[in-house]
């Protein structure tokens, strides 16, 4: 039901629109993190460090549902839908191609919403340990969440022994996406 944005929208307007989408999305990741059992038992410094390292990766998982591989469109969180072709004009082609690939791979696993949410929690606590003070506490939390995810997935699909390993293989994909693309530029209008 979202119409494709008119071609008359300037590159600048699209860039601003794309940039603005990230602000509420990041705030939602912060709220999501606080709801992860055990996350707020970490020191505040470690909570902040994990969020700084892992939010981009959590957003990549979250944004998967906004990608339509068949139509090759992306729907931003403000409701605007853009074709991949129009977004290439902003120089985002490489990032979006990588995200389409990732979305297809993750989408093919057919996760239920609660499995996806638990996977996002695992992604966050598996983020880079640079700057983390109590590494032991973070690793214990990661172990607990991975165990919970494994139990959830294998109890629902006892005959599919490959799904959980395939899901964990998406973690290095996300790190690569993060390393390659988190230095991309956003632009915010100064009022």
């Amino acid at each position: 039901s979202c119409p494709v944005a008119p071609a008359s929208r300037s590159s600048q307007e699209m860039w601003e629109s794309f940039s603005q989408c990230f602000t509420p999305a990041v705030k939602e990741v912060v709220e999501f993190a606080k709801s992860i059992p055990g996350f707020q038992t970490l020191t505040q410094q470690d909570q902040v460090m994990l969020l700084k390292s892992g939010t981009f990766q959590v957003l990549m998982v979250r944004f998967c549902s906004l990608f339509d591989p068949k139509e090759r469109t992306v729907t931003f969180l403000n409701g605007q839908t853009y074709s991949l072709a129009s977004l290439r004009a902003l120089g985002m082609g490489v990032l979006l191609d990588a995200m389409f690939d990732f979305s297809e791979k993750l989408g093919s696993l057919g996760l239920e919403p609660d499995e996806m949410a638990l996977f996002m929690a695992v992604v966050l606590v598996s983020a880079d340990r640079c700057g983390i003070v109590d590494v032991g506490a973070v690793e214990q939390l990661q172990e607990n969440l991975i165990k919970a995810l494994r139990t959830l997935i294998t109890s629902r699909r006892p005959d599919d022994t490959t799904l959980f390993p395939k899901l964990l293989l998406r973690l290095p994909d996300l790190r690569t996406l993060n390393n390659q693309h988190s230095d991309k530029l956003l632009a915010f209008r100064i009022d």
């Binding site: 601003e16 940039s19 990230f22 602000t23 990041v26 705030k27 912060v30 505040q44 909570q47 902040v48 969020l51 700084k52 939010t55 981009f56 693309h181 988190s182 230095d183 991309k184 530029l185 956003l186 632009a187 915010f188 209008r189 100064i190």
Partner: peptide
């Protein structure tokens, strides 16, 4: 005149997180 503030996605994410935790101190 400068009309836009430009920053990396990583810096923008970092800024929002720092603001959120400072607000909730």
């Amino acid at each position: 005149p400068k009309t836009h503030r430009v920053m990396t996605l990583a810096d923008h994410i970092s800024h929002i997180i720092t603001q959120d935790f400072a607000r909730n101190q």
